[in-house]
Computed example of a mutant assay.
Amino acid sequence: MIVATALRWLRHVATLALLVALALVVFLVVRPAPQDLPWTPLRLDQPPGLFTGRKLAALGRDAPACRALLRDAGLKFAAVPPHGSDQCRMQDSVRIVPRQDMLVLSPTVATACPVAAGLLLWQAQVVQPAAQRLLGTTVARIEHLGSYSCRRMYGRSGGSWSEHATGNAIDVSTFVLADGRRVSVLRDWSRDDARGRFLHAARDGSCRIFATVLSPDYNAAHRDHLHLDEADRGDLGWRACR
């Protein structure tokens, strides 16, 4: 009995050792990029990886680290004093200082710091490359329907509070191109042309950056915008891209 138990234990140990060895070999051969690893520092000059979105959302728990990340990326911003109360407390938010070459939001808006960081990464790594590839130009500014709104989801009288209630979300409605063209979620989402493909590429790419992405494909309430938020649900938390 004791011998049999010892043998089973040794087999388990051997199996575990083999799995660890195989994992190490795969790691050394594949050489994953830093953004694909959970323990590496987040950088905004790298393409989004497997853990980029979770790292961004986690910044909601570390305001100094989030602001340092923005400064390191060269993004100018102004800290916004806390306001609101209870479930509608907007704290540690920032207002982006517009620059023609980096994240121009119209109108200017205060958001939770992780949202600002996500927007910077999205613009540089997803939006601009897609615009150049599909539309032959760049995006001059991104128009939106707002960020902070003290309300529950869908404006209901009960139920869960919206991420907008703390400025942890933004609704993007239109991309204004450098050549003056306007690409609207409401008007162009369903078009079978370059504009429609650009909007879908912008949505698809945002899903590796934001915790929740909701588009016209989700429901009629999002027919005119892309909802982007950085809800922090933990390292293995639920994420949505629709």
Rank of each mutant, 00 (worst) to 15 (best):
A57T: 13
P107Q: 08
D171S: 07
V97T: 15
R181Y: 05
D86L: 08
G49Y: 06
Q128R: 12
P32M: 08
V139S: 06
V29I: 13
C88P: 10
Q128V: 07
L24I: 05
P32V: 04
S160A: 15
A178G: 08
Y154W: 09
A130W: 02
L59S: 06
P114I: 02
S157R: 14
P34G: 03
V139G: 01
P81S: 14
L145S: 11
L103T: 04
R187Q: 10
G196I: 01
Q100M: 09
T40E: 11
I142Y: 05
V80L: 08
P98L: 02
A194V: 12
G180R: 10
P41I: 02
Q91N: 12
G146W: 04
L56D: 00
V25Y: 03
D204I: 07
T166W: 00
S215G: 06
G136R: 12
A169C: 10
P38K: 12
V172R: 00
P47W: 01
A23Y: 04
L16P: 04
S184L: 02
D62G: 05
F175I: 00
R31E: 15
A63F: 07
A130E: 04
G74S: 10
R233S: 09
R43E: 12
V80P: 01
L103R: 00
Q46G: 05
Q123T: 11
C88H: 08
V97C: 06
V80Q: 14
M90N: 11
S149H: 13
V139W: 10
V104N: 15
C207W: 12
W238I: 08
L7C: 02
C88T: 11
G158K: 07
F198N: 00
A231Y: 03
A201S: 14
E230R: 07
Q125P: 07
A4T: 12
A112G: 14
M1T: 05
V13W: 10
E230H: 04
G53A: 14
R181L: 04
R187W: 02
R203N: 06
D229Q: 12
V97K: 08
L44W: 03
A140W: 05
D229S: 10
R67C: 10
A221T: 12
A112F: 04
D192G: 08
R8M: 12
W161V: 04
F210D: 03
G237L: 08
A14S: 13
R71H: 11
